[in-house]
Design a binder for these strands. Structure first.
Lengths: 215, 215
DNA sequence: TGCTCCCTCATACCTTCGTATAGTCGGCCC
DNA sequence: GGGCCGACTATACGAAGGTATGAGGGAGCA
C-alpha cells in the first residue's frame, strides 16, 4: 500500500480528459498521448456510455468525435449544455466541413481538429481547455457559495438585503416595506451575519454576483 | 428637401454594415441585399481603404473576405482588435478550410460563410452581428462614462475611493494613508460628488466596473 | 505678486448605523 | 402544552458617516 499516495494524491485532484470516439484505436492513441503528459484519461465508445459515467469533480474537458454512433456530436454538445455540464469541448472530425465547424464553434466548442491531427495540436488544445475549465470552475464555485449563504436568509432578510444593496437607507427600506426602522436594522444585521459580509461593500458585491438588481 | 427626414433621421442612426471584398460584383450584391432590409452599407475594395474611412458611431459590423488583396482576412481581424475596433466580424470565403475557420472563430469571428451563401444566411448573420454590437456598445458606453468621471478625481480622491469601496472605515483609511479621519471624509465626500454616486452602494458598483479591486 | 488648486486639519453638529435589552405575536412540530 | 422560529416593535447608547465653517501650506501659473 502506497502510503505517500494517500496525502494529496495526484490521481484524485489531477485533471481528467474524457474521450468519446467509437474507434478504439483512436481512444487508445489519445489515452497514451495524454497520459504521457500526466493527464488522467477516461474513454467511452458512445455518448450514452459517457452520460452514465460518474464525473470526477476536477478540472476536465471532453474530446468528442463529431460523428458518433447514436447522436451527432453537435447535438450531443447541445444536450450537455442543457444538462448543466459546462465542460470545454474539443471536437475531432475525419471529414467535417466548414458549416459544421462554424456550428460547433458558435455553440461554444473550444477547438475543432481534423483527423489526422498533430499530437502537439491536441496537447495544446487540451491544456487550453483544462485552463478554461479551471477558471470556469473557480468562478462557479465562488458564486454558488454565495448562493448557498443567500438561501439561508429568511424572506424578510432577502428583501432587506435587496433594498440595502440598492443604496436605500434603513428608514427608506422601512417605508418601502411598511416596517419600523428598528426591524429593518434587525433584518439587515442578521443578513450581514448570515452572508458573512463584514462590510456593506461586501454585501453589495455579493448582491451583484447574485444578480439581485439585474433582473 | 425631405423635412420629416431631419428628425430622428434613420440615415443617421441606422446600423451600418461594412463590406470588404475585392470583387466588385460581390460588393454590389451584398449592397443590394442588405439595403433591401433597410441597412446602410459601405463597401471597400481593400483593407487599407476601410482603414482610411471614417466610421460612423452607430451599431455596425464588418463582412470580410478571408482572402484580401494585401493582407489575409485573419491577420486583418487581429489588427482591428489591436486598433480597438471591436466590431463583430463575419467572414466569407470561396475556398476556405477547417483550420482557417477555427482560427477565425477562436479570434472572435461571429460567423463564417462559404461562397456562395444563401441570402438568408447572410441576413441572419448580419442581424445577429448588429445585435451583438448594440449590446457591446451599450456596455462600453456605460463603463467609459464611469471612467470619465473617475478621471476627474484627484489622486487622493482615487486612493480614498479605492479603500472605501474595499470596505474600510474612514478611520482605517486614515490609518492606511497616514491622514486624519476628517481629511478622509473630505476626499470621500468629493469623490462621491464627482462620481455622481448618491450612495456607497453606487460607488462600490462603479469601483467594480472600473476594476479597482481586481488588479 | 496674486490667484487657483490640491492637500491638510480642527471643531461642531446632525444623521445614520449597529447592537443590546426586552417584549409581543403567530405558526409549526413533537 | 411547551419549545422553537420568524417577524415585529420600543428604548437606549455608542460608533461611524456626512457636512459646514474656518484655516494654513505648497505647487503652478499669469
Amino acid at each position: 500500500m502506497d502510503h505517500a499516495g494517500r496525502i494529496g494524491d495526484p490521481s484524485i485532484s489531477a485533471p481528467v480528459v474524457y474521450v468519446i470516439d467509437d474507434d478504439l484505436a483512436i481512444r487508445e492513441a489519445l489515452d497514451s498521448l495524454l497520459r504521457s503528459v500526466g493527464l488522467r484519461v477516461s474513454g467511452f465508445g458512445s455518448a450514452s456510455a459517457f452520460l452514465s459515467a460518474t464525473l470526477a469533480d476536477v478540472p476536465s474537458c471532453l474530446i468528442l468525435d463529431i460523428r458518433l454512433p447514436e447522436v451527432s456530436g453537435l447535438d450531443f454538445q447541445m444536450r450537455l449544455q442543457g444538462a448543466g455540464i459546462a465542460m470545454p469541448v474539443i471536437f475531432m472530425t475525419g471529414h467535417g466541413d466548414i458549416p459544421m465547424t462554424v456550428r460547433a464553434m458558435k455553440a461554444g466548442a473550444l477547438d475543432f481538429l481534423t483527423k489526422p491531427f498533430r499530437d502537439q495540436d491536441m496537447l495544446d488544445a487540451v491544456s487550453r481547455a483544462i485552463e478554461v475549465d479551471k477558471t470556469q470552475r473557480a468562478s462557479t464555485r465562488a458564486t454558488s457559495q454565495i448562493k448557498e449563504l443567500y438561501d439561508t436568509l429568511t424572506l424578510r432578510e432577502k428583501e432587506v438585503m435587496t433594498f440595502v444593496t440598492k443604496g436605500l437607507m434603513n428608514k427608506q427600506v422601512a417605508a418601502e416595506m411598511s416596517l419600523s426602522e428598528i426591524t429593518v436594522k434587525i433584518h439587515r444585521g442578521s443578513a450581514m451575519r448570515k452572508m458573512s459580509a463584514r462590510t456593506l461593500a461586501d454585501l453589495v458585491r455579493m448582491a451583484e454576483s447574485l444578480g439581485l438588481h439585474s433582473d
